[in-house]
């Protein structure tokens, strides 16, 4: 299509994102040393989710796309969460 355009992300942004990801990785590691019981898993999943979002948004340029692509990705994430919910619906009531 003719209105095709590319977006170049500056190095500075790339490096900032890299450091944020490293900090979040550190948090994931640190949390494993604390005893929160079942919450440990939840926190780890939450941090992983934030990291995935950051990678999608900046490194995979979703932030700079038109609305359709972010919507498609959001749809996939919602579907994934629904599948998890339905699966654990079984486990929670067994």
């Amino acid at each position: 299509m003719s209105e095709e355009k590319t977006h170049i992300v500056p190095y500075k942004t790339q490096v900032i994102v890299l450091f944020v990801l490293l900090i979040l990785t550190g948090i994931t590691v640190a949390v494993t040393r604390l005893e929160f019981g079942a919450l440990n898993t939840l926190i780890a999943m939450l941090v992983a989710g934030i990291k995935a979002t950051i990678v999608l948004a900046w490194y995979m340029h979703l932030k700079y796309e038109k609305r359709l692509l972010p919507m498609l990705v959001a749809g996939v994430v919602i579907l994934f969460l629904l599948v998890l919910f339905v699966t654990f619906f079984d486990y929670s009531y067994r």
Partner: peptide, 13 residues
Amino acid sequence: GHHMFTSGMSGRA
């Protein structure tokens, strides 16, 4: 889950 009705899932599932 309808493939697993006799597998031992919870009643609510």
